[in-house]
């Protein structure tokens, strides 16, 4: 396990992706800072809030990253899990070391989730830091109108990072499954990203509303519920259940596929 994480985080690619994600809150903050100098007072309400409280940079950045940038990076990591090893030729050596196939899948999944956590934490952390540097930081006014102190706000930020990480469970499991189907990592990565986009598109078609609660991306942006007082836990719970269901289905599929697969790469 430690070795798996070491391989993941010793890759330059992993750091480039994390860096890119960290740049997004920075970009948002700098853009708002520059434009608010001669502010017209217009623009989406939530972006406007940044200039009043720097902590909001993190939330805005997350909202921007969730639809595309996060699925993109997660798709790269999850799609690479098995097919990447197969492509390098290391899969056969791992298996004869020997690593049990179930164990390998599990380790790969946990490592991919570790990346998801790292990615969200990086966004939140970068957002908070750049926000604090460029804007005033003070008590945060929640969506419900209540006000909480900075400490409590930091806690909420972590909670949100947790929520987003959990939200990515389903996509990671899908990526893992796709990765067992092919020896070409790029294909698995692209397919995973495409699936996340398709899911979001379906989610935006009102005609398919019956389908919406079953889409793994349906609750992605509901982390705002964690910004109410008292915290609205129901979306957190529903989301977790849904993600676990996806994990169970695609985890089983991945195991079913991988356990009997002839490794010929």
């Amino acid at each position: 396990m430690g070795s798996e994480l070491a391989v993941l985080f010793r890759r330059r690619r992993t750091w480039v992706m994390l860096l890119a994600l960290a740049l997004i809150p920075v970009l948002v903050a700098v853009a708002v800072r520059i434009s608010s100098a001669g502010s017209s007072g217009r623009g989406p309400a939530f972006i406007e809030q940044i200039s009043q409280n720097g902590l909001f940079v993190a939330l805005v950045a997350l909202t921007i990253c969730i639809p595309l940038f996060l699925p993109l990076t997660v798709g790269v990591v999850a799609g690479d899990t098995i097919s990447g090893e197969a492509n390098l030729g290391t899969l056969r050596y791992l298996l004869v070391s020997p690593v049990g196939r179930a164990r390998l899948l599990l380790v790969k999944f946990v490592a991919a989730m570790a990346f998801c956590l790292a990615a969200t934490v990086v966004i939140v952390l970068a957002g908070v830091l750049i926000g604090a540097a460029l804007f005033p930081v003070g008590p945060v006014t929640l969506l419900s109108g209540d006000t909480i102190g900075s400490g409590e706000a930091a806690l909420r930020a972590l909670l949100i990072a947790g929520y987003v990480t959990v939200s990515l469970l389903g996509l990671t499991a899908i990526g893992l499954f796709i990765s067992t189907l092919t020896d070409i990592p790029v294909g698995a990565m692209a397919a995973t990203v495409v699936i996340s986009i398709v899911s979001q598109v379906l989610d935006s078609l009102p005609q398919l509303s019956a389908l919406h609660p079953w889409l793994f991306s349906h609750y992605w942006l509901d982390f705002a519920d964690l910004l109410r007082q008292p915290i609205e836990w129901s979306s957190f719970g529903t989301n977790t259940l849904l993600q676990l269901a996806y994990l169970a289905v695609f985890g089983t599929l991945a195991y079913g596929r991988f356990a009997s697969k002839d490794v010929l790469s």
């Binding site: 430690g2 070795s3 070491a6 391989v7 010793r10 890759r11 330059r12 390098l88 030729g89 290391t90 899969l91 056969r92 050596y93 791992l94 004869v96 070391s97 020997p98 690593v99």
Partner: peptide, 24 residues
């Protein structure tokens, strides 16, 4: 040694061996 070597190009020789050894 099966059909040619397979290693992580972004790791050193030592790191590659350590990785495969820790898999055992």
């Amino acid at each position: 040694l099966i059909e040619g070597p397979g290693f992580y190009p972004f790791l050193s020789g030592t790191a590659n061996l350590r990785r495969l050894d820790s898999a055992d």
